[in-house]
Design a protein around this nucleic acid. Structure first.
Lengths: 198, 198
DNA sequence: CCAGCTAGCTAACGCTCGTAAGTTTCGCTT
DNA sequence: AAGCGAAACTTACGAGCGTTAGCTAGCTGG
């Protein structure tokens, strides 16, 4: 049975959450399990009651995040056919996620290279799916005469990295909420492909 | 005296260059001195004939890069007074640098947190100088009615990260040169602050 | 041709890391 | 009240890290 009133609130969840915070702060290789343990006020080997390895922590974080991004994208674009509409909502949820899931975004973008094979390649394939889907929207929009941009590939890269960058400065306790940031950045994205304010 | 025909072409320069490549690939903490040595076909302790510590390698890379960015900025903006003109040239050189100095940009943006104090704080102060100078151009442009943007701070963040992101996908042997990338990204930046193509 | 310096080498250090094994504590169930 | 099981603990391991010390080969300048 799981303890009703545990002496300390340590669980798979809290270990993962603490790892997430520290990985985002100092990187995967820059974070020692002893630091995670210390943050939880526990000895290092006790962590193994809630996980199987340090690498597994990273894999859990990356997989959940990458799958979340794809799920967001599908939900945001399904049923929409107009390129401007599709791009607007695809960017909106992607930008928003980087304000609400800052730590995850930072870890995925910095430490994917620390994933062991073949997991790393699998995750990269999933990321490419999102990458290509977004580029496709832009290409379609250019073909339909809705967007004005020299290179859809360049614009796609620019827009994605623009959203990712939110994770690097956004502060939860700041004066501006996730929805507001997402809307402003979506405006930036649309202006990149030559769509003025509506 | 320096050897005229060294057995192997190992020097402070080549050590730094190899470190730069590996740091960019795997991160500072993810790179072992033994890997740098292996790439140079030399045993690990031999590196100490050309450097004083691993940390020093990182410091050299970061300092040169950050100072380079500031020097670029000053040269590009001096003598220019028109906000559009100032922003155009400031972004152009900044974007260009991220195509020509990819590895440096990646290391600075990922591993500044691995710098030891007080060096880390000094470098952050220098980076803030560039940050503030760029934001000032945007604020001035908004005040002068040249730019249309809700928040100069947000736009400044977006434009800087946009340039930084070039380092993450640009390939020297690709079909597109540094000047061309820089020009296209500068167009993106100007469209973010509401300046259409000229 | 020899002295000296540069830059390589081997060996070894102290430390920290991730992980394993086995033991102890203690609340909940029966 | 007993005892089971979860989750903490201590101890220890082997590997790898950055770095130091001391030795050696060989080119270079005199």
């Amino acid at each position: 049975m799981t303890r009703a009133t545990p002496r300390n609130a340590v669980s798979s969840q809290t270990v993962l959450d603490t790892a997430l915070t520290l990985f985002a702060e100092r990187g995967y290789h820059g974070t020692a399990l002893s630091q995670i343990a210390e943050a939880l006020e526990v000895r290092t080997p006790s962590l193994y009651n809630h996980m199987t390895s340090k690498q597994e922590l990273l894999q859990t974080i990356v997989e959940a995040t990458v799958r979340g991004v794809l799920a967001d994208f599908r939900q945001a674009t399904q049923g929409r056919t107009e390129p401007i509409d599709r791009l607007f909502h695809a960017v909106l949820v992607y930008a928003r996620r980087h304000a609400t899931h800052r730590r995850e975004a930072i870890v995925v973008n910095r430490d994917t290279s620390s994933l062991e094979e073949p997991f790393r390649s699998q995750m990269q394939a999933l990321r490419r799916e999102h990458e290509h889907a977004l580029r496709q929207i832009i290409s379609d929009g250019v073909a339909a005469g809705r967007f004005t941009v020299d290179s859809p590939a360049l614009a796609s890269f620019a827009i994605r990295e623009l959203c990712v960058s939110i994770a690097r400065w956004y502060q939860d306790d700041g004066p501006i909420g996730p929805d507001q940031v997402a809307r402003e950045y979506t405006e930036f994205a649309l202006s990149i492909v030559g769509v003025g304010k509506r």
